[in-house]
Amino acid sequence: MGILDFLKRKPEPTAAVAKERLRIIVAQERSTRGAPDYLPVLRSELLEVIKKYVNVDLEAISINVERDSGHEVLELSVALPEGKAAQNPAT
């Protein structure tokens, strides 16, 4: 690559990257909006417990708090990996 090519090189178009990153973080922040402060900690502790039995990562767990008139529902869903569960060390 000659020096002229270097001078002519254009910056990578980064708007698409920005959009994708924002799409993900905004969706995540909306899902926990107005939720109790302990949620992130709850989430990671739950993950530790689940990990003892099934091999999942943080992305696999989603927690939602929904408000109905007067009461709140904490909804937890764990996407299990395909195939079998991790070896169970506890037996």
Partner: peptide, 17 residues
């Protein structure tokens, strides 16, 4: 800059928000 793909477009921002 939007046309160069360097900046979020009106549509991008509208979609995200």
């Amino acid at each position: 800059r939007v046309e160069q793909g360097e900046m979020l477009s009106v549509k991008d921002v509208e979609e995200i928000l």
